[in-house]
Design a protein around this nucleic acid. Sequence first.
DNA 1: CCGACTTTGTGCATCGGTTCACAAAGGGAT
DNA 2: ATCCCTTTGTGAACCGATGCACAAAGTCGG
Lengths: 225, 225
Amino acid sequence: MKSPSQPRDRGIPEATVARLPLYLRALHGMAERGIATVSSEDLAVAAGVNSAKLRKDLSHLGSYGTRGVGYDVEYLVYQISRELGLTQDWAVAIVGVGNLGRALANYGGFVSRGFRVAALVDADPEVVGDTIAGLNVEHIDELETVIGQRGVSIVVLATPAAAAQAVCDRVIAAGVTSILNFAPVVLSVPDSVDVRKVDLSIELQILAFHEQRKAGGPLMAMDGQ
Amino acid sequence: MKSPSQPRDRGIPEATVARLPLYLRALHGMAERGIATVSSEDLAVAAGVNSAKLRKDLSHLGSYGTRGVGYDVEYLVYQISRELGLTQDWAVAIVGVGNLGRALANYGGFVSRGFRVAALVDADPEVVGDTIAGLNVEHIDELETVIGQRGVSIVVLATPAAAAQAVCDRVIAAGVTSILNFAPVVLSVPDSVDVRKVDLSIELQILAFHEQRKAGGPLMAMDGQ
DNA sequence: CCGACTTTGTGCATCGGTTCACAAAGGGAT
DNA sequence: ATCCCTTTGTGAACCGATGCACAAAGTCGG
Ligand SMILES: NC(=O)c1ccc[n+]([C@@H]2O[C@H](COP(=O)([O-])OP(=O)(O)OC[C@H]3O[C@@H](n4cnc5c(N)ncnc54)[C@H](O)[C@@H]3O)[C@@H](O)[C@H]2O)c1
Ligand SMILES: NC(=O)c1ccc[n+]([C@@H]2O[C@H](COP(=O)([O-])OP(=O)(O)OC[C@H]3O[C@@H](n4cnc5c(N)ncnc54)[C@H](O)[C@@H]3O)[C@@H](O)[C@H]2O)c1
């Protein structure tokens, strides 16, 4: 089946990958408070997950715990960071510098860990040339140049929905294979490209669904069709 | 299974609920373009999902399709909207009117469908009293009053991480049971409360993980363990 | 050096979700 | 009215993820 060769057991489940950043955040907090080692139980509580799940997740990275003791916080931070690729620096470009794009550009929280906003790009002549968070907003015509010259490997899309697919096509053509999309559209991309989407409207609708259910309770007879 | 207006199984899978807003968006687009009926295949493509999955999802709401024809767009929009609770108006409060809170307040996209920003709340005296998107920013001391008087049932948390849990506790005490959290913390809440989180930093880290893997390719020789 | 204690790492049962594949249902043409 | 064509709705196999429960591994006090 699989090549019997070697440590290419790099097949980490997607669900696990999605939780590693959560563990990392909890671990950073602990490191700051001077905690040297942590048990799976304590870390699980801090990350809001089941401890067996946490142990299984960590076991995918290797055997980094010590039975009877727990995990070394610093060491685990390093291992998870390395696994996630945070030991290197990622250049991010934000395309679409409107309400949301500005908020993202001004946000310091993600720059702190391996990510660096390397460019801001917009189509509006009113916006181009502005300085936001110390960065000059560049014209969309420069998109490919900027991506190529600054080694941008992740693009954050914060344009209106109507423009998203076109911009998406261009950044992919420019060699980008990781996109974080805030526009409420389903982007069509080759399999080789990863797209993650953040959609506020969808989140609210899911909340509304559950809220309605709570309010309606076990019997909500009104409305026959 | 003959009555077509069967309210159906009230136990809709969570994965299905999360996709209904996607279908709804695609359907709205179709309705605007004057499309009257749509097949599961076409709608699935528009929503970016597998058609069998889409049919199974819709079957949870009832038998609203016509074999050999497809689904009536308008009717399906109505059924999904009703299921999600979008036929009623939801009052949303945004707590924390900084970079992100402002962007959310100015965002027109979700007000359009059943959601209405009913209040903006902040702790900073500099911000309180400002008018943003036509709304007065109120003081955090008024939190409970505002929630009670305006029937707020969904709260969007956009405060710094350090303040999130405290604000969360207060809004829950005020009767709110649905929270959308943008702060990078694991909120501790009773089981009866729904929390959904949006975390930009986590999304970027997941992208970085896959990006690293792509870059490393089938053989990434450095570091032997 | 030993034995009691702690905690990891994982086998296994289970569960929810996805996908395939097809019989049944319905429309439209003749 | 009958046949053919399209498309739904769903049974069933499959797949990945979850969580329990426990043996193995390692610590630490004495
Ligand atoms: N603001 C929010 O809270 C929020 C929430 C959820 C989703 N979104 C989505 O995020 C996106 C941005 O929202 P926003 O509120 O910032 O909108 P916005 O209109 O304030 O900003 C959009 C920016 O994109 C620029 N733009 C337009 N076409 C472009 C192109 N082809 N290339 C580059 N830039 C282009 C515009 O000049 C503008 O500056 C939208 O798709 C919106 O639906 C926003
Ligand atoms: N801006 C982004 O793009 C972004 C992205 C991801 C996550 N976040 C998170 O969203 C949150 C907000 O980010 P931001 O960039 O808007 O930060 P910000 O500092 O610009 O805004 C925070 C606002 O919350 C207010 N506040 C502080 N304590 C409060 C309290 N107890 N009650 C009410 N309001 C209070 C502050 O006065 C300020 O106006 C943070 O937790 C941040 O980590 C932001």
